[in-house]
């Protein structure tokens, strides 16, 4: 598989974890990690998801960052707000189902005008086969927008790093709250 080649339809049944493996040089998740480190991100908070496997593994093996596994996604909202109070930068990684867990904590981000960056690997999206994932997946953008979080979708691996760079600029320089939605066109739909 070429690094930035759009997935062949047959490959979309592969999980994000499989497709994210750095088997053929630098993959888009590696590019995202590099961009986040360039921006000085030192706290990586997450509830694990296959779509974030590379980012999680990279953060675990990087002695210069804190890799923080959460019990529930909203902890990450508080964690990143606390990191900002201390002058550090963080990013919150989750599956789309975790977005619902965060909503009231986003009151802190919006009310306090905290810079806030989240990467959401989508379920309940393009080609989803699990009906349990559909309600929250469909609600991700409206609920985040309602809480003042701007959403940027990434469908194409070639746009991943640039989108993260654009989002990180808006977050860490302009003080905005931004969610990057890594769609199932990008990461593939999980087979059932």
């Amino acid at each position: 598989m070429k690094t930035f080649e759009r997935a062949h339809p047959a490959e979309r049944t592969a999980t994000g974890a499989q497709r994210g493996e750095p088997t053929a040089g630098v993959t888009w998740p590696d590019e995202i990690y590099r961009v986040l480190r360039e921006f000085g991100v030192t706290q990586f908070a997450y509830v694990p998801d296959a779509g974030h496997k590379v980012l999680i593994d990279r953060s675990l093996s990087d002695p210069a960052v804190h890799s923080v596994a959460l019990t529930t996604e909203e902890e990450g909202v508080g964690l990143l707000a606390g990191a900002h109070l201390g002058g550090a930068r963080g990013v919150l990684l989750m599956q789309s189902s975790g977005v619902g867990n965060c909503i009231n904590f986003l009151s802190l981000v919006r009310g306090g005008q905290f810079p806030f960056l989240m990467l959401v690997s989508m379920r309940g999206d393009f080609g989803e086969g699990n009906p349990w994932q559909m309600p929250m997946g469909r609600a991700v953008e409206p609920v985040l927008e309602a809480m003042g979080v701007m959403c940027l979708r990434v469908d194409d691996a070639r746009e991943a790093a640039d989108t993260v760079r654009a989002a990180a600029t808006m977050v860490y320089q302009a003080g905005q709250a931004v969610a990057i939605l890594l769609t199932q066109k990008l990461i593939g739909a999980k087979p059932f």
Binding site: T42, Q43, H66, V68, E74, E75, G76, V77, G78, L79, L80, A81, G82, A83, H84, L85, G86, G87, A88, G90, N104, F105, S107, L108, G111
Partner: peptide, 18 residues
């Protein structure tokens, strides 16, 4: 005065940062 449940996670992020 809101975001009930966030106090400890905020303190954790702050402690890691400082």
């Amino acid at each position: 005065a809101g975001a009930m449940g966030a106090t400890t996670s905020m303190g954790l992020g702050l402690a890691l940062a400082r």
